[in-house]
């Protein structure tokens, strides 16, 4: 099975190799020869202090992952394995307790407009219209008012919401809200788009159309995308590579290259699609069992 073959090269074992390679590229900083990965996650761990317990709680541990410039990477793993935690770390919202995260070879030390996040629950500001929401990041970037408005309109068009600019979030459907949230993240032109189960709350039809549009936008803008999902199909459909995480403490169990001869037609009907699905399902099955056991014992 070709998927297996490729996955083998990029498994956890191979990840170590990538670390050394990446690490050697760092000291050179602007070293043109070995261009550093867009996102480099180096042996990253995050522990939380839990109230009423002196034992620290390890959410993720020893994560190694490189994301290439312009790549669309999807991340799957059992619930509670630390996917959101990892995304927060890349976003710079929290600091790792171990290891480091590099963007273009430079260590992350806080949030920044070079990365945009899209949350499952949209996180739109309810007192702002769709347009004003899209302008939010531009205000943070101190873009002049007139240009802000123009850019916001452009991105509103891009996500297919032309004419809905004056609506407040509560006047929009879930799918439309998520489109606004995506437009808001694109508007300040980040290199990296971090998406945490963005379509999980949407109905199947809306989800599919948003998946297609996201791919279209990604191809058009060339962003680097890290997309968390709990849907195996979604991960295969969207990702050029699918990273599978272990149960908590989360590590990268395997990274699988997804390649189709052509993306025309119904991808999900492609026999390769079924092979990928089965492969990832098998990888996840044991982890999910462990995760469920954990939830039972920890409560």
């Amino acid at each position: 099975m070709s998927a297996h073959g490729r996955a083998g090269r990029r498994g956890t074992g191979a990840g170590r190799g990538a670390v050394e390679q990446g690490a050697s590229a760092v000291p050179g900083h602007g070293a043109p020869a070995a261009r550093p990965a867009k996102i480099g996650i180096r042996d990253v761990g995050k522990t939380f202090r839990v109230r009423g317990s002196d034992r620290p709680f390890t959410a993720v541990d020893g994560i190694d992952l490189d994301v290439r410039e312009g790549e669309f990477l999807t991340l799957v793993g059992p619930s509670g394995c630390g996917k959101s935690t990892l995304l927060d770390l890349v976003a710079g919202l929290t600091a790792p307790t171990r290891g480091e995260i590099l963007i273009d070879g430079r260590a992350v030390d806080g949030p920044g407009l070079d990365r945009g996040i899209v949350f499952q629950q949209y996180a739109l500001f309810p007192w702002r219209t769709a347009l004003a929401n899209i302008e939010f990041g531009l205000e943070a970037k101190a873009v002049p008012r007139k240009e802000r408005r123009e850019r916001a309109r452009h991105y509103l068009d891009l996500v297919g919401l032309d004419g809905f600019g004056q609506r407040y979030p509560h006047e929009l459907s879930g799918g439309m809200r998520q489109r606004v949230a995506i437009a808001r993240s694109l508007a300040f032109d980040p290199d990296v788009l971090l998406m945490d189960e963005p379509f999980a709350a949407l109905d199947a039809q809306t989800r599919e159309s948003l998946q297609e549009e996201l791919l279209r936008i990604w191809e058009k803008t060339g962003k680097t995308v890290v997309f968390i999902t709990h849907g195996i199909d979604e991960a295969i459909y969207l990702g050029q590579r699918v990273a599978v995480m272990t149960s908590r403490p989360g590590r990268i169990k395997r990274v699988i290259d997804v390649a189709f001869d052509s993306r025309e037609g119904d991808l999900r009907a492609d026999p390769r699609f079924g092979e990928y699905r089965h492969h990832i399902w098998t990888l996840l099955r044991d982890e999910v069992a462990v995760a469920q056991e954990q939830e039972r014992t920890i409560g």
């Binding site: 976003a91 710079g92 919202l93 806080g110 949030p111 920044g112 407009l113 990365r115 945009g116 996040i117 949350f119 629950q121 996180a123 500001f125 007192w127 939010f136 990041g137 205000e139 943070a140 300040f188």
Partner: peptide, 27 residues
């Protein structure tokens, strides 16, 4: 909290966060 998180992710410091998120949300 998600709104605060979202605003922080766009690089807002405490002052702007207060002005642009906390205040309008509290109205």
């Amino acid at each position: 909290p998600l709104l605060v998180k979202s605003a922080r992710s766009m690089g807002l410091g405490p002052v702007r966060l207060f002005q642009k998120v906390i205040l309008p949300a509290a109205v």
